[in-house]
Every structure is written in structure tokens, then in C-alpha cells.
């Protein structure tokens, strides 16, 4: 199961990088979303998969059933929230940029360079 998800992570990164290289700002942002999801999945995978097991058990129950590691789940939750905030901000920025300049083309963004 881990190997399949690892391949999915790779695929998501591929799609993300491909979209990052496009000229449209919107596609660029979609690429960022793909990459951020790939990263979240990677962090989630880092503890290994323990399907169908709880992360918490009653204190003193003494069961020896396998436990899921709660920490990566908490990390991913935080990362998803942060990612949400950032994606909204980038979309708002893109929207304002489109409103003032009327362009979605990254090649037009050369004024502040050099």
C-alpha cells in the first residue's frame, strides 16, 4: 500500500512541476496546490500506514494491537490549514493583479526584474 501511495506522491509532484512551468499564473497556482498536496501526503506517509487502527487507546487497556502514529496526522492537519490560507491569499493576489493589469501571462511580468 505504501508503495502505491509513494508513486502517487511522485505523480502529484510531476503534475505540480509541469504546471509550475506553464505561462499562466492561474495554472502556476494550481501547480502549487498539487505540490502542496503531494507534500502533505508525503508527510502523512512518513510514519508508515497502519490501516484501521486508532491513534489513541484508553489508558491502561493494555492492548497490544498496532497503533497509528498520531503525530504525522496532526502535522498534516496543520499543514493543510496553512496551505488553505496560502492558496486563498495567492488567489486573491492573482485576482487583484488581473484586475489592475488585465494579464494572466507570466511573460508579461518583467517590469520589476533586473
Amino acid at each position: 500500500m505504501e508503495i502505491i501511495l509513494a508513486i502517487v506522491v511522485g505523480l502529484l509532484y510531476t503534475v505540480g512541476v509541469y504546471l509550475l512551468l506553464r505561462r499562466s499564473i492561474l495554472k502556476f497556482i494550481i501547480g502549487l496546490i498539487f505540490m502542496s498536496n503531494a507534500t502533505n501526503l508525503l508527510v502523512f506517509l512518513s510514519a508508515g500506514l497502519v490501516p484501521g487502527s486508532p491513534a489513541f487507546v484508553q489508558a491502561g487497556s493494555g492492548s497490544s494491537a498496532p497503533l497509528a502514529d498520531p503525530l504525522p496526522q496532526a502535522l498534516v492537519l496543520t499543514a493543510i490549514v496553512i496551505g488553505l490560507g496560502i492558496v486563498v491569499f495567492t488567489l486573491a493576489l492573482k485576482y487583484k493583479f488581473f484586475e489592475t493589469t488585465g494579464t494572466d501571462d507570466l511573460d508579461q511580468l518583467k517590469k520589476t526584474d533586473n
Partner: peptide, 14 residues
Amino acid sequence: GVTLLFVFSLTQKK
């Protein structure tokens, strides 16, 4: 508050 702020910043017109 954050959700409202997000939605506003994406829907407001000039």
C-alpha cells in the same frame, strides 16, 4: 473570521 475574510477578498468587486 478568517473564512469570512477569505470569501470577501475573493468576491469583492472594485
